[in-house]
Design a protein around this nucleic acid. Structure first.
Lengths: 221, 221
DNA sequence: ACAAAAGTGTTCTCGATACACCCATGC
DNA sequence: GCATGGGTGTATCGAGAACACTTTTGT
């Protein structure tokens, strides 16, 4: 370590992974171990191996550091400010990812140290260029809600229109008209009714819907 | 060379720079010298220096390889497929850039080898992941015409509405209604009339317009 | 009965589209 | 006078926004 390859930047991926849980947008952070800034919370990520594609690296780091697999993942931007990391030149290929709330229970994997979901009102101060990455990721996600089907990746497999609307309202930070919202999302033709209803125990049961293409995110409109 | 830093990917920038010239969309390519694939046309670009920011690197390479300065430049995507380059692992941070037609005359700089503008109907076959990069850049540019003011970077400082419309039609590959186009672009409030007219010698002289913020590209609509 | 969220239609405004003719200049 | 591109207005359509009340369940 230390002087290895000092004539090339280090290439790393960094992931901002979001979930909407308990009426708040949450971001996953991990504690960085055995490093200069150990004990500080940082975005998950790590160096890219020579024989590994960029997205594979992002998925591997999510799995290793937080036990998370199979989420929607999209490249965001590459940050490479010369002075971003005092330990040396790093080029961070940033990704953002999203995950449904029924999967935020974290499996603490052995070698991983800790991982934890933070609300945006209680985010710790982030090192390096991670603050900038989170801001860009959040902006991109908010924008994509309006012209893609990402939102279905942020709700359980079966969901109510109320839950879906909550995702929009929390991420975009603005209330929406219920009738207009329902008309718009149904008009997309990307979700279908199920026969089931969800009974939350304190009000009228809501019909459950399901994405027609649960595995993929499409550009719409 | 050769075995240097073989434990880290090489980080390079690659630029797809476009201009609309003589009724066609054109792309700048350079001949790669003293390399395995010398004498093949490739996108301009090169390795990122340790003490150099990514965008600075892109601008330096454009200047060195084609004498081009001061253009609009935007990061596109980072390509890092393991097998993209047979010489070793490369992570290509791709940019796209645009330039007005009155600047496509190339200054052949001394160390640069050749640079040349190619129409899309006569593009050579590109090595590595360059074909993919060009396709992505073109798609992004076509999309950005509709929600930003990039188009003003593709026409001279003073331009006619006919020229501007031609830029849209050529890049998006579809004819537009003249009256609707003019109404829409004028309604943006981003350009202003000048007193001058351009006389092309074979029809009625056209009024010249100028961007209000010639230096910057804004998101609109 | 009351609290809590589900469910449901109509009106209005504004931006996008379709469409055809006269004008100024060079040859 | 003819060829070439410049310049102009109106009618229609559809998407998005505003807006309030009834229904179903649990307590």
């Amino acid at each position: 370590m230390g002087s290895e390859s000092a004539n090339r930047p280090l290439v790393a991926v960094v992931i901002a992974i979001f979930a909407v849980h308990e009426r708040a947008l949450r971001l996953l952070l991990v504690r960085r171990m055995r490093e200069q800034h150990h004990q500080r919370w940082v975005l998950p990520g790590g160096r890219v191996r020579l024989e590994e594609n960029l997205e594979d690296c992002a998925r591997r780091e999510l799995a290793e550091q937080a036990g998370i697999c199979g989420v929607y993942l999209e490249q965001l931007y590459t940050f490479g400010r010369v002075s971003a990391d005092p330990r040396g030149r790093v080029v961070n290929v940033a990704y953002y990812a999203v995950m449904p709330p029924d999967r935020v229970v974290l499996r603490h994997s052995a070698d991983a140290g800790e991982a934890e979901w933070f609300g945006f009102d209680a985010l710790p101060i982030l090192e390096f260029d991670h603050q900038e990455i989170v801001t860009a990721a959040r902006r991109r996600l908010a924008a994509k809600l309006d012209y893609s089907t990402v939102a279905f990746q942020l709700v359980p497999e079966m969901f109510t229109l109320g839950e879906l609307q909550e995702v929009y309202e929390i991420i975009q930070g603005a209330g929406l008209d219920k009738r207009n919202f329902r008309r718009r999302v149904l008009a997309l033709g990307a979700i279908e009714e199920t026969c089931e209803k969800r009974n939350d125990g304190r009000s009228r049961p809501a019909r459950l819907y399901r994405a027609r293409q649960p595995g993929s995110v499409a550009i719409v409109r």
